[in-house]
Write a protein that binds this DNA or RNA. Structure first.
Lengths: 243, 243
DNA sequence: CTCGTCCGATTGTCCGACAATCCTACGATC
DNA sequence: GATCGTAGGATTGTCGGACAATCGGACGAG
């Protein structure tokens, strides 16, 4: 048992085709928005059957590298958009039995520095977006459905103000995970609404006056408040969230 | 132009099949590790052709929800593993023209709190893993190839010590993006090696003694050091990284 | 220039087929 | 009893061909 051999694996043709296509996309030979050749043509070039090409294309579609634009039929190279990526990540997180505590902790770590960076970088346009999100939440005095959405939207807007694509993409999955639970939380704890509104107002003010430190600390309290809401709502922080 | 209609979209059959399968996976009817029925059987159940089933399966494979275990032929339900997810995310980031500065900033925000949490939560086993990664890096006094790998491994080990799956998954893509550039950086700036070694040692010590504050601040310096390394190496922080 | 119409190209889906390989079980051998 | 060889059936990967639906683009009419 001295020597060990590497597992020799013969990749199926559709995988090779997928990889060949992916390579061209990643090295930007195939630019974003480019339409790719017809399936028949690809089949000819790769020397495989059309069905094989199709399978490869479907795989890349699954990874978000290919997609058809607005219900049209033509397949184009697309870069995986934030929401698509986030969807995949949150699916993965759910399947890894992530708990509410995990999410809350991550938010607690991520959001305050994000708010801080946002306060430093925000442009006027960013500010307007954040203000709008905050106003939308405040206006939604009935519908829990969209209230949760707008609460998440506020975080997203703050994230966008950092102008750092990684941070934006990073906290998107968290928001996506949080949103459904926010709904039930706000149903059970009506007073949380008011708290959220004032917290958002404070954060917005701090970002407006570019006070990074204040933005951070208000955001910290804001997140902590959320967890208190969950406690009151009787959510077990150790329970896992569902997709 | 008063009214607007929602775009009516007829989803192709393979998409519907994919979604039906995904639903069963997400609601855990199909457990992780379960083998799914044969393609012929699935085709029978869904009332479509085998080729159609295949395309659906390929799509789910692309999202990491299905996979074949170790070169075997049988398809099983898999949860998207961290590295698979991270790969997708970093691909997406590259295609979104992320710059070195973006990565560095994100690390600067993420890693210190992660180190802090790690110091609080670490078990003996975690500590051993971190120590090993650090030792591995120190031992690699020739090979830049694996030195970069071990440098990333150190971060990963620290991340694992937080026992928060979200944080682990979150900083994985960053490391994956960083690794190639680390290689060239260490080539051009040999003295960075020594600095990294001492920094890792300090962080390790702080985590060992559960000194959260120290872990955080040493990690901050550590990351800052990296950026200095890039400067010396003459890397333009505004240039985008390549896949 | 805008609208309707037509034709070729392309996609989505199906059928049937076959080699390669895997999984399983069953003996055969030591 | 454990390991190995083998046979048989099931399953996957790949192919060829086929056809309806629909899209894209060109062409002409108004």
């Amino acid at each position: 048992m001295a020597i060990e051999f590497d597992a020799i694996q013969t990749e199926p043709a559709y995988r090779k085709v997928a990889e060949a296509l992916m390579e061209r996309i990643l090295d930007r030979t195939l630019q974003r928005g480019d339409r790719l050749p017809s399936e028949t043509e690809l089949a000819r070039q790769f020397g495989v059957n059309r069905s094989t090409v199709r399978e490869a294309v479907r795989e890349l579609q699954g990874s978000g590298l290919l997609g058809r634009s607005r219900g049209s039929k033509l397949l184009v190279v697309t870069r995986p958009e934030a929401d698509h990526v986030a969807e995949g990540v949150s699916r993965a997180l759910v399947m890894h039995d992530v708990t509410y505590r995990d999410v809350w902790e991550a938010l607690m770590i991520l959001e305050p520095p994000i708010a801080e960076a946002a306060a430093r970088r925000r442009t006027e346009a960013d500010l307007a977006t954040i203000a709008k999100a905050s106003a939308n939440f405040a206006a939604d005095n009935e519908d829990t459905e969209s209230a949760a959405f707008h609460a998440a939207e506020f975080f997203r807007a703050v994230g966008a103000a950092t102008h750092n694509r990684i941070l934006m993409m990073g906290h998107d999955p968290l928001l996506q995970l949080l949103e459904p639970s926010l709904r039930s939380m706000m149903d059970k704890v009506p007073q949380s609404r008011a708290r959220i509104i004032t917290a958002e107002k404070r954060i917005l003010e701090a970002i407006r006056s570019k006070d990074a430190e204040a933005a951070r600390s208000w955001m910290t309290r804001h997140i902590r408040d959320y967890s208190r809401g969950y406690e009151i709502a009787g959510v077990d922080l150790e329970s896992r969230l569902e997709g």
